[in-house]
């Protein structure tokens, strides 16, 4: 890209009206327990992969709900699927299936 000596900053706001809700709708339809997350962060605190990388399931779920596809795609692949978050979640969110569904949505919509 040419360097013009300046760059245009993207709007920092989440524009929920224009956000891409495809993954969110897909996951909500097939694993509705994504709706009952209370963002307590237990999953992230216990995450095995979280020791090595900044995989953060709580944020990932938020990214999905807010339509942040780039963030979602970047993080989801790091999950080892070990299931610790499933055991730790106080709400009974089916975390592993949420992750599987997000992966499927990414594939389905070729994101």
């Amino acid at each position: 890209m040419k360097n013009f000596g300046y760059s245009i900053n993207k709007d920092r706001q989440i524009d929920l009206d224009k956000s891409d809700q495809r993954i969110a709708l897909f996951v909500k339809q097939h694993e509705p327990s994504i709706n009952i997350c209370i963002s307590c962060g237990t999953c992230t605190a216990t995450c095995s992969a979280g020791n090595y990388t900044n995989l953060n399931l709580r944020k990932l779920i938020l990214s999905v709900k807010r339509g942040d596809i780039i963030e979602t795609k970047a993080e989801i692949s790091k999950c080892m699927f070990c299931g610790k978050c499933l055991l730790a979640c106080p709400r009974g969110v089916n975390t592993r299936n949420v992750i599987l569904k997000i992966n499927q949505a990414i594939e389905k919509f070729s994101l």
């Binding site: 095995s48 992969a49 090595y52 990388t53 989801i76 692949s77 790091k78 999950c79 080892m80 699927f81 070990c82 299931g83 610790k84 055991l87 992966n103 499927q104 990414i106 594939e107």
Partner: peptide
Amino acid sequence: PENNNFEYLQPIAIATPKASVIYFAGCM
């Protein structure tokens, strides 16, 4: 979908001092 990527594990060095028995507790 084959989307997993564990490249982040590559640079991690797990120091393993010599021992006669290894205990692996497991995630759970």
